[in-house]
C-alpha cells in the first residue's frame, strides 16, 4: 500500500528525518510513538505531500505509484487523508460546506455529524473557536466524508474528553475498517479483505483500546526504530522510557 524506501526529509534546510524505511500493507494499522519534537508529525506531513517537507533522498510509493514528488491534492485524490493536530481557521467557510466539498460520494454532512454529536458546529466557520477536542471531531468528520484508503492520524485523541473518547475511538475504528461488529462472513475472512490502512501518532495509547493496531514504531531523533507489537512497545516505553525502548527493541 505505502512504501518508504530510505526517505530523508529536510524542513527549512534542516534534516529532520533520516533514512526512513517503512511499509504499510493493505489492511494494516501502524502506530507511531516518540517524544515531542522527534519527527512524527514531519513523517505524516511528508507522506501527505505538504510543501516545505522536502524529500532529499529515497522514494515513496503508494498503491504502486511513485508519489515522491506528486502534488498534495493528487495524493488526496488517490485516497490519502489526514487529520491534523492544529489545522488553520478558514473564515467565511462553513464546516458544513467543507464536509460537502470533501465528500466524493455526496454524503450528507448532517448525518455524518450526528455520528460524532457535532451537528451544532456545522454552521461555524471551519475550526473557528473550537476546543482541542472539537477540532479532533471536525477533522474526523472531514475524513469520514473523504473516506480515505490511507488514513493518517496525528494524535487523534489528544484533547478529547473522557465522555467523547469512545465516540472518537469508534469512528476511527470504522474509518480503518477495524470495528468489531457482526459481518456476513467469518471475522477472519473479512480481515483478509480489509483494504483500509492507517498510521496513527499517539502519546497516550488510548486509541489502541478502540483500534487494534498491527505494528508499532518508535521515532527518536528523526530515526524510525523497530517494527514490533504496538502493545509491547507501549508498555516498554511506559516502564523504561523511549531511549531504553529503542535500545532493547532494535
Amino acid at each position: 500500500m505505502l512504501i518508504l524506501d530510505g526517505v530523508t526529509v529536510e524542513v527549512a534546510g534542516k534534516e529532520i528525518l533520516h533514512d526512513i524505511n517503512l511499509e504499510v500493507k493493505p489492511g494494516e494499522t501502524h502506530v507511531l510513538f516518540g517524544p515531542n519534537g522527534t519527527g512524527k508529525t514531519t513523517l505524516l506531513m511528508t507522506i501527505m505531500g505538504f510543501a516545505g517537507y522536502t524529500v532529499t533522498k529515497g522514494r515513496m510509493s503508494y498503491k504502486g505509484e511513485d508519489i515522491t514528488t506528486m502534488p498534495l491534492h493528487e495524493r488526496a485524490k488517490m485516497g490519502m487523508g489526514m487529520s491534523f493536530q492544529r489545522p488553520p481557521t478558514i473564515r467565511g467557510l462553513k464546516t458544513r460546506n467543507l464536509v460537502a466539498l470533501c465528500s466524493k460520494m455526496g454524503k450528507d454532512p448532517e448525518e455524518l455529524a450526528r455520528r460524532l454529536s457535532f451537528e451544532k458546529f456545522l454552521d461555524r466557520d471551519v475550526n473557528d473557536n473550537l476546543s482541542g477536542g472539537e477540532i479532533k471531531k471536525s477533522e474526523l468528520l472531514q475524513l469520514m466524508a473523504q473516506d480515505p484508503d490511507m488514513v493518517l492520524l496525528d494524535e487523534p485523541e489528544s484533547g478529547v474528553d473522557l465522555e467523547n473518547i469512545a465516540l472518537v475511538g469508534e469512528v476511527i475504528a470504522e474509518l480503518l475498517d477495524k470495528a468489531i461488529k457482526h459481518f456476513n462472513e467469518p471475522m477472519i475472512e473479512h480481515k483478509k479483505k480489509r483494504k483500509k490502512s492507517g498510521i496513527i501518532i499517539t502519546h497516550t495509547g488510548f486509541i489502541m483500546r478502540y483500534v487494534n493496531a498491527d505494528v508499532g514504531h518508535v521515532i527518536l531523533n528523526g530515526r524510525l526504530s523497530c517494527a514490533n507489537n504496538p502493545e509491547e512497545i507501549f508498555s516498554c516505553v511506559g516502564k523504561f522510557g523511549y531511549e531504553e525502548c529503542v535500545r532493547c527493541m532494535v
Partner: peptide
C-alpha cells in the same frame, strides 16, 4: 489554508477560490 484544503482533495485553484469566497462572505 490552501494546503489544508488541498489535503482534502481540492486543487490549488479550487482551494484559493474557496478561501476567497469565504473571505468575502
Amino acid at each position: 489554508e490552501i494546503e489544508y484544503l488541498m489535503s482534502r482533495g481540492l486543487s490549488e485553484e479550487e482551494a484559493t477560490a474557496t478561501i476567497v469566497r469565504g473571505f468575502l462572505n
